[in-house]
Measured scan of single mutants.
Amino acid sequence: MSRESDVEAQQSHGSSACSQPHGSVTQSQGSSSQSQGISSSSTSTMPNSSQSSHSSSGTLSSLETVSTQELYSIPEDQEPEDQEPEEPTPAPWARLWALQDGFANLECVNDNYWFGRDKSCEYCFDEPLLKRTDKYRTYSKKHFRIFREVGPKNSYIAYIEDHSGNGTFVNTELVGKGKRRPLNNNSEIALSLSRNKVFVFFDLTVDDQSVYPKALRDEYIMSKTLGSGACGEVKLAFERKTCKKVAIKIISKRKFAIGSAREADPALNVETEIEILKKLNHPCIIKIKNFFDAEDYYIVLELMEGGELFDKVVGNKRLKEATCKLYFYQMLLAVQYLHENGIIHRDLKPENVLLSSQEEDCLIKITDFGHSKILGETSLMRTLCGTPTYLAPEVLVSVGTAGYNRAVDCWSLGVILFICLSGYPPFSEHRTQVSLKDQITSGKYNFIPEVWAEVSEKALDLVKKLLVVDPKARFTTEEALRHPWLQDEDMKRKFQDLLSEENESTALPQVL
């Protein structure tokens, strides 16, 4: 008996699950189920560990084997000379395990699969056993689809999209007709009724959600790893209520002995410091949205989908001078704002400069500016000194954290500008005749005249004003913003236009 009217009423009120309206889709043409990776026989039982391990490696599972009696060998002398080797079968990115008779397991190899009674669906509900069930008529011709799209860092995100009359449910929550939600590992998919569980979705590319604290899981769906560094790992996640993407940084307390840091400095109150950081608001710094204190720290951040500045300059790639100017102007505005709010970044580098898009002209935002507030000064500097390429001379020669101030950030900005303009770092371990530390503390950077011949004198002058060993003589952010190279009204107008595109209400910060 159909429950279409009941569920449609529920759909009209929406769902609290991570779902959002989605535009129309072009329906895929039908194809045989076997060619799409559906096993030839149905099963109602969950797999054992041996079955799972075989399939996850990209080899055929026991459900897909063919009797050897149906095959015969071709003698080598009868092999056609022009026969080309077969292409290897792509490894599946996800697996659906059937929970009921009449449904088959599915190895997801393609990027898009339609499910329903219509014969054009890649996964067609046409098993005779299924057709005899009382629920068969409640399934729509095109009930739902599972697909994946390219996300940040060229990774993939799996989604389920509801197109049914009676509802598609993920972990008992209604997706909603015309809406989608991301699928995470071990999600249970039910059709027409929330208790009519048909599939379990296994994402073969992500970790299980159960490793994360419950308070975090209640608000966010964790997904793929976006990156990792000395101070922690960053994962893509989704807000459950809105389906908006965020980035979540995970900082290990054990790695940084944060408990010991608190004992050594009783004034170090991470929760208080995070609340201060959350109040920071500038178009060129990453917004801190939320914070969870569990076995590790979880910092929920605004997501930038254009990648890191590092990706644009790695491998001796240089940027156009006009692009360097647009990016560097924004970096200076961001660091100036942090300094005005009493925050020294201490870890400025291309990896911590994020881009809003893949376009050459785009907004940038500074991230990882609050680590000293979370990890403690000593722990952070011990970590950073392991990779000193961007560290100021006074940091390398000081004991502990004494003896330096916000000028350290201006040195790091000078190193970043040098790399963007030239395509190579000013200080490098590859210069074996002088140690990296000695290069930095003496201010002897690697200047290649033929490379810098293409760079304007004004740009080079600003680099020199920032890479000054004496912090008292080094340019401040205010002085850098007043430098002739940055007195470019076309560049500032472009920045204002980019801000307006992102948010019509965002105004250009005042600069002296």
Score class of each variant (00 low, 15 high):
residue 268 L to E: 12
residue 168 T to A: 03
residue 118 D to T: 11
residue 92 P to W: 12
residue 143 H to A: 02
residue 151 G to D: 08
residue 178 G to A: 14
residue 254 R to L: 01
residue 167 G to H: 00
residue 220 Y to N: 04
residue 220 Y to S: 01
residue 132 R to S: 10
residue 82 D to N: 12
residue 39 S to I: 11
residue 197 K to I: 00
residue 139 Y to W: 05
residue 139 Y to T: 00
residue 159 Y to A: 00
residue 60 L to A: 05
residue 237 A to F: 04
residue 217 R to C: 14
residue 204 L to Q: 07
residue 39 S to T: 06
residue 227 G to C: 12
residue 222 M to C: 06
residue 200 V to Y: 01
residue 43 T to C: 15
residue 6 D to N: 08
residue 222 M to P: 04
residue 255 K to W: 00
residue 161 E to G: 12
residue 223 S to A: 05
residue 104 A to D: 10
residue 8 E to S: 07
residue 154 N to M: 12
residue 213 P to L: 13
residue 213 P to G: 05
residue 5 S to I: 15
residue 119 K to C: 10
residue 140 S to F: 02
residue 239 E to R: 06
residue 27 Q to A: 05
residue 105 N to E: 13
residue 7 V to R: 05
residue 51 Q to Y: 14
residue 89 T to M: 15
residue 246 V to G: 07
residue 40 S to T: 08
residue 135 K to Y: 15
residue 37 G to Q: 11
residue 228 S to M: 15
residue 141 K to V: 01
residue 103 F to L: 10
residue 17 A to N: 06
residue 97 W to L: 06
residue 105 N to R: 13
residue 209 Q to Y: 13
residue 157 I to M: 02
residue 249 K to F: 02
residue 219 E to I: 12
residue 134 D to S: 14
residue 27 Q to I: 10
residue 267 A to F: 01
residue 176 G to L: 02
residue 270 V to D: 07
residue 6 D to T: 15
residue 38 I to G: 07
residue 77 D to S: 07
residue 58 G to S: 07
residue 144 F to Y: 11
residue 181 R to I: 05
residue 121 C to W: 02
residue 216 L to D: 01
residue 53 S to T: 05
residue 236 L to M: 06
residue 142 K to G: 10
residue 11 Q to G: 11
residue 172 T to R: 08
residue 237 A to I: 01
residue 46 M to F: 13
residue 227 G to A: 15
residue 191 L to H: 00
residue 86 E to F: 06
residue 57 S to Q: 04
residue 225 T to H: 11
residue 87 E to I: 09
residue 236 L to R: 05
residue 117 R to C: 01
residue 145 R to S: 12
residue 98 A to T: 05
residue 231 C to G: 14
residue 248 I to T: 14
residue 149 E to I: 09
residue 121 C to K: 01
residue 269 N to Q: 04
residue 170 V to F: 13
residue 127 E to I: 13
residue 108 C to H: 01
residue 214 K to G: 05
residue 167 G to S: 00
residue 51 Q to G: 05
residue 77 D to N: 15
residue 111 D to W: 14
residue 107 E to D: 11
residue 88 P to H: 11
residue 5 S to R: 14
residue 110 N to M: 12
residue 178 G to I: 15
residue 262 R to Y: 12
residue 256 F to E: 05
residue 226 L to A: 08
residue 110 N to K: 12
residue 185 N to R: 13
residue 153 K to G: 00
residue 166 N to R: 03
residue 220 Y to C: 09
residue 257 A to D: 03
residue 251 I to L: 05
residue 90 P to V: 08
residue 18 C to D: 13
residue 59 T to L: 03
residue 37 G to K: 15
residue 171 N to M: 11
residue 117 R to G: 00
residue 82 D to R: 07
